[in-house]
Nucleic acid binder design. Structure first.
Length: 256
DNA sequence: ATGGTGGGTTCCCCA
């Protein structure tokens, strides 16, 4: 089984890249972030024609998450069930086979010290609480998405430049570690200690084209049974190249 | 190069 996470930066704008990618790669389960549309605006028919079932959680203009699955999708959950946070469509979860999947789009935070930064830290704390309260880590739990945080300096092309900046600050990293505290592991780091593996490259600085100037902020967090079944986590760099890409590459985890 | 590009919306916000 292969599970992918991909921040597509608008599912409608990205459809010419998403459809061929689904046809070619045929992932079993796909977790999308930043769909940026209401459920009724989602290009459902085109994706269903490729053999996927859908579960959607969207809003106008911003955010939006979705689950695409070859297998039936059961027990769909949208949001934390906490009105303080659920005005934004950032979380959708479901059961697919024996996998409990949660698709997350963590708050970006704008810049360190901004009001949105404080909101980001509180949002991440709430995600940790949600996971502790609602998930049995003895099951195959896969929490994946755009976390908008690097784990450490191996995840940054230029750590000195990014030191203490948004996506890289110590409080954000501590908040991310707090999410893992319930028993999840960084899937990619189970397989490699190498740096230089990135999932996002800034459009504005043309970081992808100008020498792989990226950050790793899209992650697979795995419970012990999910980690035991995982055979690899890889970034699909081809999907970040070419015409009209998202600023994020898909990350694909393979399971036995 | 404290800018830039890209997506959605509306005369600007967000990333």
């Amino acid at each position: 089984m292969r599970i992918a996470t991909w921040n597509v930066n608008s599912v409608r704008a990205r459809l010419p890249r998403i459809l061929p990618w689904l046809s070619e790669k045929r992932p079993d389960l796909v977790l999308l972030q930043e769909t940026k549309c209401l459920p009724e605006q989602f290009p459902a028919e085109e994706i269903e024609e490729l053999g996927y079932n859908l579960a959607l959680h969207g809003q106008k203009t911003y955010n939006g998450v979705a689950i695409l699955s070859k297998q039936p999708i059961e027990d769909v959950v949208r949001g934390f069930g906490d009105e303080e946070f659920d005005g934004e469509a950032r979380v959708i979860g479901a059961t697919v086979g024996d996998v409990l999947a949660l698709c997350v789009y963590v708050v970006n935070g704008q810049e360190v010290g901004a009001p949105k930064y404080d909101y980001k830290l509180r949002w991440m704390e709430r995600l940790g609480t949600f996971l502790r309260e609602r998930y049995d880590m003895g099951e195959k739990v896969v929490v994946a998405g755009d976390f908008n945080v690097t784990f450490d300096d191996r995840d940054i092309y230029d750590p000195d430049k990014w030191r203490d900046r948004i996506l890289c600050s110590t409080p954000e990293r501590e908040a991310l570690a707090g999410i893992l505290d319930c028993g999840l592991a960084d899937g990619l780091r189970h397989f490699t200690d190498e740096g230089g593996i990135y999932t996002w490259w800034d459009f504005r600085t043309r970081g992808f084209q100008r020498g792989n100037r990226g950050l790793r902020i899209d992650h697979f967090l795995l419970s012990p049974p999910a980690l035991a079944a995982c055979r690899g986590v890889e970034v699909d760099l081809e999907a970040r190249a070419g015409d009209k890409p998202s600023d994020h590459a898909p990350v694909v985890a393979t399971f036995e």
